[in-house]
Design a protein around this nucleic acid. Structure first.
Lengths: 187, 187
DNA sequence: GTCTATATACGGATAGAC
DNA sequence: GTCTATCCGTATATAGAC
């Protein structure tokens, strides 16, 4: 891996973080360059436009998500345990969620308002999760309604993240996570 | 009501619409002035800063919301019918939601990322709804957990709106609205 | 590959004539 | 109350020296 690749990676990592914490529109090239430790001018050697960085960030998030979910699948044999693990992610990330919301949800919301060309790419992050949830639900014997249940679970998580963020209320997130687990157990 | 008040009202109405459809950061003074039919320069006679417009928009949304909810309370005697009516709002607004998400949720999400001073004011829109839901739930005999159930309902609605927006999937919204009503009936 | 200087456009905001 | 002209900062983006 050359030095160029390392710089490229640093830029994407910095942009990923800043897009999450500040939003896409509100984050400037300078912000990213400063955070990555790359001089403003040299920036354009790696990315020609802001959209290119966004595409790289979406790609990275989708890959990271897929890796995490695959690891849970390898680690846990019982599909119900895997789904529980998914809910545990909410609790584990409660600090970030209270401050910045969900990285997938808030980005999709922002890009929808911008009528951004990459909005459908951002929605593919959700697809990664939805497909994984659906597979676990099928393994649980819910083949018929697995897809709908997966979307339902996705929406529940997004609602919890949004309200937790708006109210800065981690106690709410914890209560709802417990309730989601009861819902899983009843499936 | 003088001409100044009318112009002021036109500005707030235009800003309300644009903040919903384009987001706060991405909407410029020029956008609002153009939409309201007010010359750019004259704008500052009514509002000194963009934040002042935002404050007026939040105020208007909260008032409009309170009026709508009060009307439902006057129209329907049964608290369960009132709650059903709340769920019906999702279905009625499905076109807007699919395109732009929830006006409350998307604004709170955006302001949280900006670390905007008015973020807590925006959250007060949620409080108007939460308090109303809580009252209906208490009237249903759920005094003990009315507050938690109200927040739960709020979060369910937000999750549905977000996923509907991300996937542009009105069928999902309709299915989830039906499910929410079943949940209400089981209370 | 790295960095400086700079072009160009647009944002929010102001002064002041009418 | 209305409108024009304009300031200043910042944003994206480019040219070109090193």
């Amino acid at each position: 891996m050359g030095k160029g690749d390392i710089n490229r990676q640093k830029i994407v990592a910095a942009a990923d973080d800043l897009f999450y914490r500040q939003g896409y529109v509100h984050t400037s090239f300078s912000d990213i360059a400063d955070a990555a430790g790359i001089p403003r001018g040299n920036f354009y050697y790696y990315f020609k436009t802001k959209d290119e960085i966004l595409a790289a960030v979406i790609d990275q998030r989708a890959h990271h998500l897929a890796e995490t979910l695959a690891a849970w699948e390898a680690e846990l044999a019982d599909p119900r345990d895997r789904l529980r693990r998914y809910v545990d992610m909410l609790t584990a990330e409660q600090e970030h969620i209270a401050q910045y919301g969900c990285p997938m949800g808030s980005l999709c919301t922002e890009l929808a308002k911008l009528r951004h060309a990459l909005q459908s790419d951002a929605a593919r992050m959700f697809e990664v999760v939805r497909a994984w949830l659906e597979r676990q639900l099928k393994a649980l014997g819910r083949a018929r309604d697995a897809r709908q249940l997966a979307l339902h679970l996705l929406a529940r998580g997004q609602g919890i993240a949004l309200i937790t963020n708006a109210y800065r209320d981690r106690a709410f997130l914890q209560r709802e996570a417990r309730e989601l687990k009861r819902w899983l157990d009843a499936l």
